[in-house]
Design a protein around this nucleic acid. Structure first.
Lengths: 112, 112
DNA sequence: TCGACATTTCGCCGATAGTCGAAATATCGA
DNA sequence: TCGATATTTCGACTATCGGCGAAATGTCGA
């Protein structure tokens, strides 16, 4: 991932509702949720949510697929990894003691 | 870290120049760089950069200290860890295979 | 095909962010 | 103390973002 794409992804997440939506989808997993249910969950009008979902999708953070009348949205874990990888790249100029705790952060994600 | 603070941090990074400054300081390490040198490095006017540095500082991503006439800015690695930790928290609802690669991402940071 | 449901697109509006020149503040050496 | 250097603050302008109602699009069951 290059800097302009990272800015897109960060901009997409730099919004209360969008960050809430993204985290919701990350928790839900690959099954995803229909747009209407996401709208109800986060308390946003469907049309407003649609623009947020478009922004998150354009940033490579979520995917969508149509199922009947519903459009199912789900987290794009590859995009998420790309952003996290970009943020930690070259993070310590060869001094592992600085960023070693980052590995713990990532592992703690599955420890509960 | 709570969601509003995460939004602040992500907003701070969601800008080409600010993300460039942050990554520069993350690479440089605890020694940091004076504001003027950062401005020259990223090609931004000193007054404009000053507002960017204030935003990054308010978001908890960088620190500053005065040394003589210069103000030295450096990355706040605790703040950085807080943001990364927030992004991966509850990321896979108990399915480690989804976020296990995140640990590799973090470790790859020091592997070169 | 028609009506109902789900989602998106459009057009408008107010609020906010980003940039710049100019002026103010802080520190140091002479 | 004075002038030079480093940085920040101020004020104003423009561009962009976010939200809404209304209308359009897509899909399905009858």
């Amino acid at each position: 991932m290059l800097l302009p794409e990272a800015v897109d992804a960060l901009s997409a997440l730099a919004h209360g509702h969008r960050l809430g939506v993204f985290r919701l989808l990350v928790r839900v997993g690959a099954d995803g949720l229909p747009a209407g249910e996401i709208a109800r969950e986060v308390g946003v009008l469907p049309n407003t949510l649609s623009t947020h979902l478009t922004i998150l999708g354009h940033a490579g953070l979520i995917q969508s697929r149509r199922e009947g009348r519903s459009v199912i949205y789900s987290a794009d874990y590859d995009g998420m990894r790309g952003l996290l990888g970009f943020l930690v790249s070259d993070c310590c100029a060869g001094r592992p003691e600085i960023c070693a705790p980052l590995a713990e952060v990532a592992q703690s994600c599955c420890d509960k």
